[in-house]
Design a protein around this nucleic acid. Structure first.
Lengths: 191, 191
DNA sequence: CTGATTTTTGACCTGTAGTACAAGAATTCG
DNA sequence: CGAATTCTTGTACTACAGGTCAAAAATCAG
């Protein structure tokens, strides 16, 4: 019973995520969130408790969607190198296509809150570890498939690529597509 | 003539830089700056005009110091690979030694203001390009010295390493020294 | 319809960011 | 010393961040 919600929480979290992603946590005001979600400030606080809790939900959603996307793209047919390249290129291109490059919400959060905020640090770490794991598995599969040399250290390469990815999403803020693609090529030389 | 300044501007900019570095641009208040520099809020505005202008000076100082440090470390005796590894290790360890990992002011700025702020974007891009150039020169020198294979594309490797560096300074917010050093090793495999 | 329950709305509140400004202090010049 | 100049200090001000709350609105059980 009781009055029914006038909005879908998941939808609101998603809108909030977009806003946090674009403007950053600190620079997003409750008013911004209200406008983005179309839900009154008061209702948001009623439903989510605080700006911070809403952000946690948004970050969680981002991580989940990111992991799914990563798995999906890596699993498409092709060699490990081809798939990983496609993955990196896709993320970089996505970054560059918007009116304003937003990078990666997790990376942005890592720099904005990392080290100062327990919860955020853990969340960011988890998504990074997840990515590394997916990359490692894909490389290992490449070794089974015979398209990656058996002597390659899958974990080390996965870490290198994940780190490169973080770098790319910072560089995407200031450099152009050509340079970023060049970096991707160099980073994949070890495969 | 007139009353002499009660503080050294350069010193104040340096203190301000430390604060911006630790807390980020948006999260640093005029009150923080006044406390960090020991100069009254009013005096700061009189001397520097605005928070933004002070930040520009601080970022500029950071870039200059960074470039000098890079050049200095790379120029010490050793092979290109040894020197570049030492450079990366030094930056990562510095990041980790403080009570709170601060990353790189330029990278932080790139993520906080990049794409939205012309001036900041330019400054960050300049420091990145500078770093790439110094790395390229050092690799090229390594080729002359014979410690780097002649077939290596110095510019591509320099870009890869600069990108790796950016990534490391993001990862340093959430990962430990061991993993970061592993990434450094992998990244230098191409030399 | 009444009451219980939950959501919405909008007003309201406290604190601080970012800046402006006026009055006073320190210094040099004549 | 007085005047001119430049810096300092502290107050004042506007705007907005972040959040709270009371009252109205919507639903359902009985």
């Amino acid at each position: 019973m009781g009055r029914p919600k006038g909005f879908e929480p998941e939808r609101a979290v998603e809108q909030a995520m977009q806003t946090f992603w674009t403007k950053g946590y600190g620079a997003t005001s409750p008013a911004d969130l209200a406008e983005a979600t179309g839900v009154g400030k008061g209702s948001l606080y009623h439903a989510f408790g605080s700006k911070r809790e809403l952000f946690d939900r948004a970050l969680q959603m981002y991580c989940r969607a990111g992991a799914e996307l990563t798995a999906e793209v890596l699993d498409r047919p092709g060699t490990a190198k081809e798939r990983i390249r496609a993955y990196l290129v896709m993320l970089v291109d996505r970054d560059l296509e918007g009116p304003v490059p937003r990078g990666c919400l997790a990376a942005n959060t890592a720099l904005e809150l990392g080290g100062r905020d327990e919860e955020a640090t853990r969340a960011v770490r988890r998504v990074a570890e997840q990515t590394i794991e997916l990359l490692r598995d894909r490389i290992a599969r490449g070794q089974l498939d015979g398209d990656v040399a058996a002597g390659v250290d899958a974990l080390a390469q996965a870490r290198l690529i994940a780190n490169t990815l973080m770098g790319l999403r910072v560089m995407a803020r200031t450099f152009d597509r050509t340079m970023l693609h060049g970096v991707i090529d160099s980073a994949l030389a070890g495969l």
